[in-house]
Amino acid sequence: MNRQQKLAWFNLVILVFSLLLSSTVVIWMAVVLKAGPIALSGFGLFAICLLHLLGPAVFPKKRKAGQVLFDERDAEIARRALSYGDVTSNVFFVSTFVCALLALGFEGSVRVASLGLIIGGAYFVSKVTESLTTLILYGRERTDGQD
């Protein structure tokens, strides 16, 4: 497993953990504390997903003499992963607003706090897609031993 795959797994674990944690808190506040719409503030915990930005520090580049760590194929996979993540976040963003428009109508309104959820959701979708694409594109290939 190369550094890009490790970073993708790291991102995926942090993002899914953040989503599960914040969702659990929201459900707990809504059901146990009967907090009503305030329960959605539990999604603020989702901000811990920003820990995934520490990935490059957790997995530093370890270069042996003469060894290449990142080449044109890695760049191509990174570029494709980034573009897939970009597309899915755009689709998420647009579809969310279209759904809101269909559900609430032209005269409807949403809470300002829900905009944060939409942006956070788009970020989540983007990063998860990017990580999954990276893992799939690397994972499809044979893993022959050294010969």
Binding site: D71, D74, R140, E141
Partner: peptide
């Protein structure tokens, strides 16, 4: 890989016909 300036995974992918090099 070292002599061509790429990673070993790239050589594996090229040998296996999974990646077309530049």
């Amino acid at each position: 890989a070292n002599r061509a300036g790429v990673t070993r995974q790239t050589i594996i992918a090229i040998e296996g016909g999974k990646y077309a090099p530049s």
